[in-house]
């Protein structure tokens, strides 16, 4: 484990060392934002809508007591979505989708000697391949998280009113009640950190693949598992730091 940690740090130093031509770099960032971010929009929307709906219903069934006002449902749903679901859950999903994509793409380039082909030209292959992905993810993930918050809250509104558990007026009153904007900031900070973890850890596993197709598959699995675990650890850490 310390071996991987050390090699990961050296890898990060190579990723940020010696930047390429700006022209090439910006084209790549745009391409990665499209490939990694915009392409994940569909799954983020679906997950968030269902998550918001379920959270609202569960809260409604759990606080089915006469002396607790119904708007509490909207408030509780809002806080779970803003604090936890839209950042941590969405980023765990992205770790699966984007992480495996990055690891298998870079891993395939490694085993087919495409990375050697870049290195032999005197180009910093780690920087060229990885930096645009990290920058793109750090930029687009907070936006995805914001979208997820909106969709999640809308999902709760839909399920609450369709099931009749909480009326639209109560729900809307609830989501505005004692609203703390810092919760959004907190989630966006987490999104940035998680995006960095997903892209850099997955790229690390892909970059150091050796062998063939089987090893590429293994790298991709490792990328998802390790980045998910690191996300959970950092979630705990950031919660302590930012909310306590």
């Amino acid at each position: 484990m310390f071996y991987h940690l050390g090699r990961y740090v050296l890898f990060l130093i190579r990723v940020i060392g010696r930047p390429q031509k700006h022209r090439v770099f910006f084209t790549q960032i745009v391409r990665e934002i499209d490939k990694l971010g915009i392409n994940s929009l569909g799954i983020v929307v679906i997950i968030s809508a269902f998550m918001g709906a379920v959270v609202t219903l569960q809260t409604a069934y759990n606080i089915d007591m006469p002396f607790i006002p119904r708007y509490t449902i909207g408030l509780a749903a809002r806080d779970s979505i803003l604090l936890e679901f839209s950042s941590t859950i969405v980023c765990l999903i992205l770790a699966g989708k984007v992480g495996s994509n990055i690891a298998s793409e870079i891993g395939t380039m490694r085993v087919t000697e495409q990375i050697d082909a870049i290195d032999i030209m005197g180009i910093n292959s780690a920087g060229y391949l990885v930096l645009p992905k990290v920058v793109a993810m750090v930029f687009i993930t907070p936006i995805l998280v914001l979208i997820s918050m909106g969709i999640g809250i809308a999902g709760g509104y839909m399920s609450g009113s369709l099931s009749g558990e909480v009326s639209p007026a109560e729900y809307i009153y609830g989501i505005q009640y004692a609203f703390r904007p810092f919760y959004i900031v907190y989630s966006l900070i987490k999104a940035v950190v998680f995006a960095f973890i997903i892209s850099s850890v997955s790229a690390y596993w892909g970059y150091y693949t050796s062998g063939g197709a089987l090893e590429v598959g293994r790298a991709s699995t490792r990328a998802v598992v390790t980045s998910s675990i690191i996300i959970l650890l950092f979630n705990l850490l950031l919660t302590q730091l930012l909310l306590a």
């Binding site: 087919t112 000697e113 050697d116 082909a117 290195d119 032999i120 030209m121 005197g122």
Partner: peptide
């Protein structure tokens, strides 16, 4: 090394095209 590499061309076994 970087400058030397710009004087090198290499053909890999599997072509290694992007």
């Amino acid at each position: 090394v970087r400058l030397l590499r710009q004087d090198m061309g290499m053909l890999f076994q599997g072509s290694a095209l992007f």
